[in-house]
Design a protein around this nucleic acid. Structure first.
Lengths: 129, 129
DNA sequence: AATTAAACGCAACAAAGTTGCATTTAAGAA
DNA sequence: TTCTTAAATGCAACTTTGTTGCGTTTAATT
């Protein structure tokens, strides 16, 4: 893998994502980061963090892209597959990782899986009250 | 539901999607339709067809939006949930509906599901040869 | 044939993401 | 510590994707 550097901007953005209980979009990250770095830089940092497998990309049914921290053990060698469910509340719009919900399914023969994206939309417990 | 009309453009676009073995993006539909109608009109037709539940929207892990025909029985009354898996081949880029693959999963209490988006990326049997 | 609201085309706009290039900077080497 | 250099950044420009408003056209009913 290509060398990557630990820059201030990268660390700051990773902190934002790691400390957030919900997945964040590029726009949200930019705002939370107080415009401390360029729009383009954020795109590039998100790409790097995703490639390094410390965050993962989530695409909601409405098409918005969000990012969340990975919670797998650091020592895992192989590229992690994020096969847990992401819940997208239609009321509060928040996207949360349901780390414990891993769907089971069986593909026909000869399909090779590299990546999965399981997103469920609906109403979360908080908004259902 | 609001009245909808069967226009030439709508019928043409529905035919394109229905006759395609793979899910189509807006750009692909526009090209296949020979620019016979406006870009905006295609967006509006896709929205209508989706609302009428004769096509469904698929969002791939890379964030591209595609549309595929629905193959459920016409007489179903309730709004259909497309809980089958969509496979996105990373080589040929084609997105196909695996109608028979329906993942099972169990959400924590009090989550209400309205919509699901299950997409798996990898290599399809044709490209694996 | 007349009516009317849905659908359309067009222009303008907004949001999201990409690319090229000159400048800055992190991190290892001297 | 300073030197070196490739990674990272900022900025401008651009593309792609999706939206909105409005005047005109057209499908479907009367």
């Amino acid at each position: 893998m290509k060398n990557t550097r630990n820059t201030i901007a990268k660390a700051a953005i990773f902190e934002l994502i790691k400390n957030s209980k919900v997945a964040l979009s590029h726009a949200e990250i930019q705002e939370l980061n107080q415009e401390a770095c360029d729009r383009v830089t954020i795109y590039r940092i998100l790409d790097r963090l995703t490639a390094e497998d410390v965050i993962h990309k989530i695409v909601t049914p409405s098409g918005t892209v969000k990012y969340a921290a990975c919670h797998h053990a650091d020592h895992e060698e192989q590229h992690h597959v994020h096969n847990h469910v992401h819940f997208n509340c239609e009321v509060c719009q928040l996207v949360t990782c349901l780390e414990n919900v891993e769907p089971t399914f069986k593909l026909p023969a000869n399909y090779k899986v590299n990546q999965v994206n399981f997103t469920v939309s609906g109403i979360c417990p908080s908004c259902a009250l």
